[in-house]
Design a protein around this nucleic acid. Structure first.
Length: 589
RNA sequence: GGGCGUGUAGCACAGCUGGAUAAUGCAUCGGCCUCCUAAGCCGAAGAUCGCGGGUUCGAAUCCUGCCGCGCCCGCCA
């Protein structure tokens, strides 16, 4: 709790300095209490024992006794060698009424000024519909974007379009060479595409891609060689900036990308800018880069003329050669990525990438190369892949859960629940609530776990609507909205902070969490840990429910002024927090 | 084989810049709708923190050796 810390820390510094203990040795030890009934801030005194030659408990006792009395503190206690500072609920209430908890712009609560951030996420190959495996990137990335914005940062959300690789090459080749009949016959033993998505090009064109992949692996050798050489010619041409080929690629993938973006839009995910990979080839920055790399002292050349950097000389373990140029002189994906990052550093002074764990080595190589060139490394948020209970997902093999299907299913299941719980709602209202709840449940299911953890997608978990899920938070918000609606126009008692003895636990707990709200947001944004904020939102909702239980805002058509203020702040924090998680803060459900 | 990550109640998951009785949800068992929406609230039970060593006043957290799982180790993207 920063609010409290700002007051307590300087006093503590003076007091401890008089005993010969410097600020530096305990500043990081002063932290939020683990048990909330013990206090709000805790200082372990064990480390002082050897300096003062006293038992930790004795030291804690002494400090507790000598610490000045402050309005902000309800109590200072010394337990088992820990010094616990407990905030005075009356003071918390006064802080809240005075507007100390800023909603929607935590930077007002922090010394760090507003910064500009460029967050690149998703950047999926536009070769087929979005599936759940890819979704972790998009949901994680978009949540990061939203939380940074909530924090007050200026954020640019960027999608790097892979418009010249083999994947797009295969798609373009297939669209040109395969008829619908051929595709259907090649895919005849696979499950038919859903009728529902006939209008979406991503679902249509992926079949050409899959059919081509079958031909590439199952044809006879002559046919295989013929296909490979044709695709190779296209890819090669694209890598040399051939405008005609690049245009044919774009014609092939654009409708797919559009379909993918439509799906993402349903999840509330959108981008500020799209940057095409080919840009750096066409503009010549990649070839300039390769020349520069050639002149580095760790550069080497293979027998066939291929260029590489010996990153082992800079401490990279395992495979030490990082190839940036093929024998034929063309660039590689990673080379273009280096050029892309150099360009990105010209766009923003903080770069964050969201990448799958399979990109770890590549990201390291790119990062080291950037440093070799005098640039900085971007910050990277890695995540583990989402698996199905049956195994890994793959667009090529076709064993995927499409995001479109998941969202339909989420909507349908949510609709069943709404209908059951609110039989008086009309169809339109049910549909609107089901859409918000369904998409929220899907997002939250992914956001609430830490990204490096392996994740197995299970329907029953994604669509759980109980405590610990997005609808739990949404529900608390609707309670606050309901109170807000009912209170408007009614008479109100004067807003005054109640006596400390009359404050129920539900009220105190909520006020405490409110006063930590922006601390948590700042922490989440600085550490790129979206799940910390997601879990905090669950706690906030839980605390609001406790307040709702203990404190009645409305009593016989008279509004309690103070409770109303608390409820309204709760409503704002819940609303903006939900938006920060990409969840639609509906007012009724 | 090498590199990176991960292993916490039946299941899922938080805590990991060392600190108090390891937090939370699901499932299980019990209680609460004449009272602002019960998608809620209150309570009970459930954990050799993968296994073995080490460092420390103190280890789920740091070091080390095993074991399981995941990802990577292309002049692919």
């Amino acid at each position: 709790m920063k609010l409290l810390r700002q007051i307590v820390e300087p006093r503590l510094e003076t007091l401890l300095a008089s005993k010969g203990i410097e600020h530096g040795m305990w500043a990081s030890a002063l932290q939020p209490s683990r048990e909330s009934d013990q206090g709000d801030l805790t200082l372990p005194c064990f480390a002082f024992a050897s300096i003062l030659r006293q038992a930790p408990q004795q030291i804690a006792d002494t400090i507790a006794n000598e610490f000045p009395e402050l309005d902000c503190l309800q109590s200072i206690s010394a337990v088992n060698g820990y010094l616990n500072f407990k905030a005075n609920p009356v003071w918390l209430a006064q802080q809240i009424l005075a507007g100390a908890v800023h909603v929607g712009d935590a930077t007002k609560n922090s010394e760090s000024a507003s910064r500009s951030v460029l967050i690149e996420h998703t950047s999926a190959n536009p070769n087929g519909p979005f599936h759940v495996g890819r979704a972790r990137n998009a949901i994680l990335g978009d949540t990061l974007v939203r939380l940074h914005r909530l924090h007050g940062d200026e954020v640019r959300a960027e999608y790097y379009v892979d418009d010249m690789g083999k994947q797009v090459g295969v798609l373009a080749w297939a669209l040109e060479h395969l008829s619908e009949e051929e595709v259907n016959s090649l895919l005849s033993n696979r499950s038919k595409p859903s009728e529902r998505w006939l209008h979406k090009e991503d679902h249509q064109r992926v079949r050409w891609y899959q059919a081509a992949q079958i031909l590439r692996s199952d044809s006879d050798e002559t046919k295989k060689a013929e296909i490979e050489s044709e695709i190779g010619r296209l890819v090669h041409a694209s890598e040399h900036g051939d405008q005609e080929v690049l245009q044919s690629f774009e014609d092939a993938y654009s409708p797919v990308l559009e379909g993918m973006l439509e799906t993402l839009g349903r999840l509330g995910i959108s981008f500020s800018t799209f940057t095409k990979e080919s840009k750096f080839v066409v503009e010549g920055t990649v070839s300039q880069l390769m020349e520069t790399l050639d002149n580095l002292d760790i550069a080497g050349t293979a027998d066939n003329g291929a260029g590489y950097l010996d990153l082992g000389a800079r401490g990279l373990k395992g495979k030490t050669e990082f190839f940036f140029r093929r024998g034929d002189g063309s660039s590689l994906y990673a080379t273009r990525d280096v050029a892309y990052h150099q360009w990105k550093w010209g766009q923003s002074n903080r770069l964050i990438n969201v990448l799958g764990e399979d990109h770890k080595l590549q990201a390291k190589q790119v990062g080291m190369t950037l440093e070799e060139l005098g640039s900085k490394r971007p910050e990277v948020l890695f995540y583990s892949f989402i698996k199905l209970p049956e195994g890994k997902m793959s667009t090529r093999k076709g064993n995927v859960v499409f995001m479109d299907d998941l969202l339909e299913e989420a909507h349908a299941q949510a609709a069943v629940v709404v209908k059951e719980l609110r039989p008086d709602y009309g169809d339109e209202q049910i549909a609107a609530i089901a859409e918000a709840v369904g998409t929220a449940a899907v997002r939250f299911n992914i956001i609430k776990v830490s990204p490096e953890k392996g994740f197995t997608f299970r329907w029953e978990e994604a669509l759980a609507f109980e405590a610990g899920s997005a609808p739990f938070i949404m529900y608390s918000h609707t309670r606050a909205c309901s109170i807000s609606r009912r209170a408007s126009g009614l008479d109100q008692t004067p807003v005054s902070v109640p006596d400390i003895g009359t404050m129920p636990s539900g009220l105190v707990e909520l006020m405490r969490l409110m006063c930590c709200h922006n601390d948590v947001l700042e922490h989440a944004v600085e550490q790129q840990k979206t799940h910390i904020f997601a879990l905090h939102m669950l706690e906030l909702a839980n605390a609001y429910n406790g307040f709702y239980r203990d404190c009645h805002v409305l009593n016989d058509n008279l509004v309690d002024g103070f409770f109303y203020e608390i409820s309204e702040l709760g409503r704002s924090l819940l609303r903006t927090g939900l938006q920060g998680l990409g969840i639609s803060p509906i007012e009724q459900m």
